[in-house]
Amino acid sequence: MIRVALIDGPLAADHPALGARNLLRAGDAAGPEGTHAAAMAAALLAGCPGARIDNLVVFGGGLTTTAECVASALEAAEGAALVLCAFGMARADPGMAAAVARLLDAGALVVAAAPARGAPVYPAGFAGVVSVQGDARCGPGDWSRLDLPQARFGACPALAGHPGVGGASVAAAHFAGIVARRIGAGEDPAGVIAELARTAPHQGRERRGIAPAAPPG
């Protein structure tokens, strides 16, 4: 079993994969913040059904939070093998950066959502964080190696049964599930990322609207 820290909204108290819950904000499992967390957990568990989720709640009253709250959640995630941040903050907060650095130094992997366009977001923009954006080429168990300034990997941006949630958040959760399954099977975390980069079914950025080149002859 692998322990995954989900920094997001609140999961329901009776969620079958819930290990522990830390309410840094008083979120509502029936509100939009809870809907988002439930979708992220579903995408994660689709890739790694045996994951145990530590739910660190930073969203309350909607999908809003502060950098200070996220930094506290990152600090509380100590001991998790994998940390999922399926969101992005506009500011590179020093407290967040320091908490991420401590997790990475302890051997954890941090997977975070990154937008396909626009300015960098955090924690995805911090060095060492595995940044993921949506890639329409990818199915739920699929991934791509992008090596773009804003995102190293791409993954499926959609989730069956959750039509209102999608994009980079879902992609990061899907990718976290792919990573968690391999770590849970005993693979070295650093080696997992290198292997996923090497064996990605899709290499290079998605190029929408560009037809493949005709074969020679």
Rank of each mutant, 00 (worst) to 15 (best):
A73G: 10
L74Y: 12
A77N: 09
E78A: 15
A81M: 05
C85I: 09
A86C: 10
F87S: 08
F87D: 04
G88S: 11
G88N: 14
M89W: 13
A90T: 08
D93R: 06
D93K: 07
A98D: 07
V100E: 06
A101E: 07
R102K: 14
R102N: 05
R102I: 04
L104C: 11
L104S: 07
L104Y: 09
A108Y: 11
A108W: 14
A108F: 13
L109S: 10
V111Q: 10
R117M: 12
A119F: 06
A119M: 04
P123L: 09
G125Q: 02
A127C: 11
A127T: 15
G128N: 14
V129E: 07
V132M: 00
Q133K: 09
D135G: 01
D135V: 00
D135L: 00
R137L: 00
G139N: 01
G139W: 07
P140G: 11
G141F: 01
G141D: 09
D142G: 08
W143V: 09
W143I: 04
R145Q: 08
R145H: 14
L146I: 08
D147R: 12
L148F: 03
Q150F: 02
Q150V: 04
R152Y: 00
R152L: 13
C156A: 15
P157I: 13
A158S: 13
L159S: 05
G161V: 06
P163T: 00
V165M: 00
G166A: 11
S169W: 13
V170F: 15
